[in-house]
């Protein structure tokens, strides 16, 4: 009996530690300007504070927020929508490219004898282990010269190359698990290898590709340094934008919280979708169980 109580007590502590910051973000996003910075923290909606949707409508529709100190300007928070759209476009396209290219390379690594295969695979892995700061300087110069700074194309190329190593390793692991006999049977039946890949192997690998794509998309979605450094305005994504609102004067935590919640919801949905592949995803396919 005591053991059970201890177990649930420990579990409650763990849940509290991990859940509290998330709970705090969410309730802050429903608070008025006065409530969000109140000295005595307001914890329960309906009880401690009157919840409002003003932060969300301000961010999404650009409406003004009323407060006791007069009408607060909606500022430039209409920008959030543009940033969100940029994030969607850039992470969407770069993920599609990374998964496409990486899957092909992974297939080749899985099925063909390639001279220096081990070294090539290690090279691909090592590019991901590299501290990004090291390659940042040349890329900065290079993008400045080619006019790729502050462009969709620039970030798409960067995020694609950041995710390709991951896709190659993940997909190679998955392909290794698809029996060779599948293609061989098809080829005995008269298919060429290209046809066998397209009609037999790829359909088998679709769930794995989807999981891989979700991980890649999350990486691109969350990326901050490159986007912050290379973009001024036009192609800037959400993370640098969120950070920049904090930098200027008094922080409006309520609206920031609302923006953060909107930005984070897709990730939570995605995490739920790939929950069975998480172990593989976070270890580059090194751990499979």
């Amino acid at each position: 009996m005591l053991r059970r109580i201890l177990f649930w007590l420990a579990l409650a502590l763990v849940i509290f530690y991990f859940a509290f910051p998330l709970y705090w973000i969410v309730i802050s996003s429903f608070k008025t300007i006065a409530d969000v910075t109140r000295a005595t923290p307001a914890m329960l909606p309906f009880v401690d504070f009157q919840q409002t949707l003003a932060n969300y409508s301000s961010i999404l529709l650009g409406t003004n927020i009323e407060s006791e100190t007069g009408v607060q300007a909606a500022a430039s928070l209409g920008e959030f929508r543009e940033r969100l759209l940029n994030s969607v476009i850039i992470s969407g396209i770069s993920t599609a490219l990374a998964v496409g290219m990486g899957t092909l390379a992974a297939y080749a690594f899985s099925r063909f004898r390639i001279p220096g295969e081990g070294d090539l695979l290690f090279f691909i892995l090592s590019t991901r282990m590299l501290p990004p700061v090291v390659v940042l300087i040349p890329i900065f110069l290079f993008f400045s010269n080619l006019g790729l700074r502050d462009s969709y194309l620039g970030l798409i190329i960067l995020y694609t190359s950041a995710n390709v190593p991951f896709v190659v390793w993940m997909m190679k692991g998955f392909f290794d698990e698809i029996p060779l006999e599948y293609e061989e049977a098809a080829m005995v039946d008269g298919y060429s290898r290209i046809e066998a890949v397209w009609k037999i192997v790829i359909p088998e690998a679709i769930p794995a590709m989807a999981a891989t794509a979700v991980f890649s998309a999350i990486v691109a979605w969350n990326e901050f340094v490159l986007s912050n450094l290379l973009n001024r305005n036009y192609a800037s994504t959400v993370p640098p934008y969120l950070n920049s609102i904090v930098g200027v004067g008094q922080v409006e935590w309520g609206r920031l919280a609302a923006a953060a919640v909107l930005f984070v919801i897709p990730i939570i949905v995605f995490t739920f979708l790939v929950r069975n592949h998480l172990l593989r995803g976070v270890t580059f396919g090194a751990v499979r169980r």
Binding site: F270, L278, V282
Partner: peptide
């Protein structure tokens, strides 16, 4: 389990911003 795994999937910027909010002097 799925709930506990959420923190590592979040954007580091969002995570840090909110800890900053919680860690302010007041």
């Amino acid at each position: 389990m799925t709930g506990l795994l959420i923190p590592m999937m979040l954007s580091p910027v969002v995570v840090a911003l909110f800890w900053r909010f919680m860690m302010q002097g007041d």
